[in-house]
Amino acid sequence: MSRHYGILLSLAIIVSMVLLASLVLTANDISIIPLQLGLSELASRIVRYSYCNCINSSLSLAIVNAILWDFRGIDTFFETTVLFIAVIGGWIVYKNVFEFNRTSISGKTYSLIVETITKLSLVIAFIVSLALALNGHLSPGGGFQGGVLFSTAIIVLIVVNGLEWLRRNLLPPYRALSLRTIGLLGIFSLAFLPLLSGLIHGYVGFVFQNQAKPPLSFFNLYYEVGGVRYSLIILLYNLFEYIAVTAAFTLVFYTIATIVFREEQGVRG
């Protein structure tokens, strides 16, 4: 009981210190992060560039996605690589323990209704997450978000139907690994596509280039709906990112579920 009083006391001390510090700051008319009343020049340029019906534009309605794939494409590629390396590292630690015979993690088998509904909801989750990934350049969302959404459906599937079902019918761990590599290689080769096209046709091409930069480069990849142009290459980047992230998280869930299995069976490495 005294332990709880200690936690409450420290909480009260922290809250009162925060309030006191902000009172002192306000009395001296200081703010740690300045309150902005208008956009800076850089930000308004980015907002203008990311979608306009002009020559130099990123052709993506979602500005954050335009920044991620057009302005900072190399950053995003290496961020995906970091996730890739983390997943591979975790998988290597538990590489040779993919042995499971039981139907579900906790040893219980769920009823047929629950199993069937889980499989059905996997289809729904696939459609919703694919839409989230493919609409990445038009609305909030993107490849990473879609992949995470689909992989949450996969973790429910592992809990209900068991790892063995997932491995036999949907995605064995080795295939997940190769899908992961395909996604990353897709991003990599799309990044070098403008450069190659420039070399072939005799103009300048940039790595991670989105749309044409008229005096220098004429590489253009867009689709048109009702007379309005949208970037196609950001859509493809989001698709490959979706594949990569889904496969990566499936691999992580294989690893963690295997650890849970071993703990339950009393195996010590």
């Binding site: 902000s22 009172l23 306000t26 009395a27 703010s31």
Partner: peptide, 13 residues
């Protein structure tokens, strides 16, 4: 005292 600035400071602190 500016209440908006105070709330903003509480947030950041």
């Amino acid at each position: 005292m500016d209440i908006q600035l105070f709330l903003w400071n509480v947030f950041t602190v």
